[in-house]
């Protein structure tokens, strides 16, 4: 099981700024190990976010996103106390969901 995400959601006017830091290797499939074999690609493909259970964001990523990915987005109409949940799925089918409360 992957490490938890760090999610911070802060109200800024009539919207909330959400910053997510995921813990993931994001291997591109381009690199080789010391024996010269290609390290297989392993990266997050899909990220979705929900605001109080309603999906607000869908992102598709390729292998060129940096290791331990960062994502920032703004959810309109979010208020303090609302729940923001973020889910990622990688190309091995692993997934993780974490939730944060808007502050």
């Amino acid at each position: 099981m992957a490490d938890p995400m760090r999610i911070r959601a802060q109200v800024a006017g009539d919207k909330a700024t959400v910053r997510v830091l995921m813990s993931h290797e994001m291997e591109t499939g381009q690199r080789k190990d010391s024996a010269g074999k290609t390290i297989p690609a392993w990266f997050i493909k899909d990220v979705t976010a929900t605001h109080n259970g309603k999906q607000v964001l869908a992102v598709q990523w390729g292998p060129s996103i940096a290791k331990n990915p960062f994502l920032q987005f703004n959810v309109k109409g979010a208020k303090a106390g609302d729940k923001i949940a973020v889910t990622w799925v990688d190309n091995k089918g692993e997934k993780r969901t974490d939730e944060a409360t808007v502050a």
Partner: peptide, 17 residues
């Protein structure tokens, strides 16, 4: 690198690395 789907609930502004 990345595709972000934009809808009414989210602002068309994203940051990543």
């Amino acid at each position: 690198a990345a595709v972000f789907d934009v809808n009414d609930a989210v602002e068309a502004s994203f940051n990543t690395r």
